[in-house]
Each structure stands twice: as structure tokens, then as C-alpha cells.
Simulated scan of single mutants.
Amino acid sequence: MERLALRSRGGAVFWCLVLLIALPVLAEDAERGQIIQTVREFARRNRVPLDPNFSPNEINSFRINYITNNPEFSATGRIMVSNRFAFFFAVHDTNVEVSYFKLVNPSMSALIENRPLSELASVAAKTNLLTEETAFRLAKEYFKLQGHKDENFHAPFFKQITFGNKEHDPKHYFAFPFYEAEWVRKDAKNVPSDLQQVMLPNVVIRVSGITSNLEYYSKVSLPVGKDFETSFKAPKKGVKPK
């Protein structure tokens, strides 16, 4: 009887240890599945040229960073699919969203990495299916597809991506078939005309005139799944915001 009791206690301890090890793994697997599903929905919603039913074998990297100093469950991370599609995600409580997307595009890489002028000229010479008007319309469409609302942001800054100075050196000036729009949230003060060095609550969308598709999306300093933690109310005329 004593041996049986020891075996029973030993078995109970063993299974407790198994559960202690297995439960975090199962929880992480569930989180991983939810994140992959969110990425698939993003790809489908935004017509990303990636099969939404991509195989797990196509995932090149997957990293989750848990935020331990938050009283509610929070995490961030990234996932790369087929070496071409980069997604950053954010998790808050039970909400998961894609907060950053980038299509790894050789043409765009040539612009970012300051390649020789001949390569820049080659990118600029590619067929551009968009005009400024249609590109802006497309960017606004993607903005709304992510659930953002115009009334929560200042009027967007919109530009075609270019290189050089058209007036001073027209031979080395290139207009590329890419367009970028940036929305700054309405509670941001002193909005500058050039936002490159300023980290404000904002949304950036880049579209391609080569494919008429989304190339890049990011949201900065915005809560998961919405533009504001609470609904934004503009101050009344003549009343200075606090």
C-alpha cells in the first residue's frame, strides 16, 4: 500500500510537471495561430499578392516579444512569409492586429539603398499605372480598410516619391511610380510640414504605381484596433485645448 501511495504521489507530481511545461506551450501555440490568422486576414483584405492560405512552411521567421510590465496581456512581434512579406503585429488583451506591413520589392530597395543613378533611372522608367489623383484615392481606400477614420486625423500629407531636385538638377531628378500618404492624429500639436524626424501618432501608407497595390503600411503610437483609446472630441471654437 505504501509503495502504491508513493507511486500515486509520484504520478501526480509527474503529470503536474507535464502540465506546467505543456500549458505555456499550448498557450503560445494558440497565440501563434491567432497571429497567423490575423496576418492572413490582412493579406486577404488588402489584396496582398500572397496566398492567404499560405503554408506554415512558408514562414521564414516568427518572433513574439511579451511585454511584462503591462497589467494586461500585451505582446509585439514580427513574421516574415516567403522572404517577401514582412508583418509586425501587436497584441493587447485578446486583440491582435498587423501594425506594420512591407512588401520586399527590389525596385523600392533600390531607392532606399541609394543605388547607382542608372538603377534609379530604371525604376523611374517603369510603367506607372497611377496618377496622383488615382494614387491618393487608392491610399485612402487602404487607410479605411484598416479601420481608420478620417475624422480622427488631420488632412493627410501626400506625395510622389522622388529623387533629386527638379529645378536645380533636372537631369538627375527622378519621379518614381510610388506614392505615400501620411495621416497624423488630430490630438497631435504643432504638426510640421516635414514629418520625417518626428514620431507622432500617425498612419503611413505607400502604394505602387507598378502594381496598383499596397506596398507599405504602418501605424505609430496608436492603440491596438482603434485610433483612440476613447472617442476623440475636437475642442470648441475659441476654446484652447488643455
Results as ranks from 00 to 15, higher is better:
3 R>L: 09
4 L>S: 12
5 A>L: 14
6 L>H: 03
8 S>F: 05
10 G>H: 11
12 A>K: 13
12 A>L: 15
13 V>E: 15
16 C>M: 12
18 V>K: 00
24 P>H: 12
25 V>N: 12
27 A>M: 15
27 A>R: 12
28 E>M: 05
29 D>W: 14
31 E>Q: 15
32 R>C: 08
34 Q>F: 07
34 Q>A: 14
34 Q>P: 03
35 I>R: 03
39 V>D: 05
39 V>H: 04
40 R>P: 07
41 E>Q: 14
48 V>Y: 03
48 V>K: 03
49 P>G: 15
52 P>M: 06
55 S>T: 10
58 E>F: 01
59 I>D: 11
60 N>R: 01
61 S>C: 04
65 N>G: 03
65 N>M: 04
66 Y>S: 15
66 Y>H: 15
68 T>P: 02
70 N>F: 13
72 E>Q: 10
73 F>Y: 15
79 I>F: 02
79 I>C: 04
80 M>K: 01
80 M>A: 02
81 V>G: 00
81 V>E: 03
82 S>D: 08
83 N>T: 05
85 F>N: 09
87 F>S: 01
89 F>G: 05
90 A>F: 07
97 E>G: 12
97 E>D: 14
98 V>Y: 12
103 L>P: 07
105 N>Y: 11
106 P>K: 14
106 P>R: 05
106 P>V: 07
108 M>I: 13
109 S>G: 08
109 S>N: 15
114 N>L: 11
114 N>H: 13
116 P>F: 08
116 P>W: 04
117 L>R: 00
119 E>Q: 13
119 E>T: 10
121 A>H: 02
121 A>R: 07
123 V>D: 08
123 V>K: 06
123 V>N: 01
123 V>R: 09
123 V>Y: 14
124 A>H: 01
125 A>I: 05
125 A>N: 06
127 T>M: 02
128 N>Q: 06
129 L>I: 04
129 L>S: 14
131 T>Q: 07
131 T>D: 12
134 T>F: 03
134 T>N: 00
135 A>M: 05
135 A>E: 11
137 R>D: 14
139 A>T: 02
139 A>Y: 01
140 K>G: 03
145 L>D: 14
146 Q>R: 15
147 G>F: 01
151 E>L: 03
152 N>W: 01
156 P>C: 00
156 P>K: 05
157 F>Q: 07
159 K>H: 13
160 Q>A: 03
163 F>E: 04
164 G>R: 07
165 N>K: 15
165 N>R: 11
166 K>N: 12
166 K>T: 08
166 K>D: 14
167 E>C: 11
169 D>C: 15
169 D>E: 15
173 Y>E: 10
173 Y>R: 03
176 F>R: 10
176 F>A: 06
177 P>M: 04
177 P>W: 05
178 F>W: 13
178 F>M: 06
187 D>Q: 08
187 D>E: 08
191 V>E: 10
198 V>L: 12
198 V>K: 12
200 L>R: 10
204 V>I: 08
205 I>S: 00
205 I>G: 00
206 R>E: 06
206 R>Q: 06
215 E>F: 00
217 Y>V: 02
217 Y>C: 00
217 Y>P: 00
218 S>D: 08
222 L>Q: 03
225 G>H: 01
228 F>Y: 15
232 F>S: 07
233 K>E: 07
235 P>Q: 02
237 K>R: 05
239 V>W: 12
241 P>K: 02
241 P>N: 00
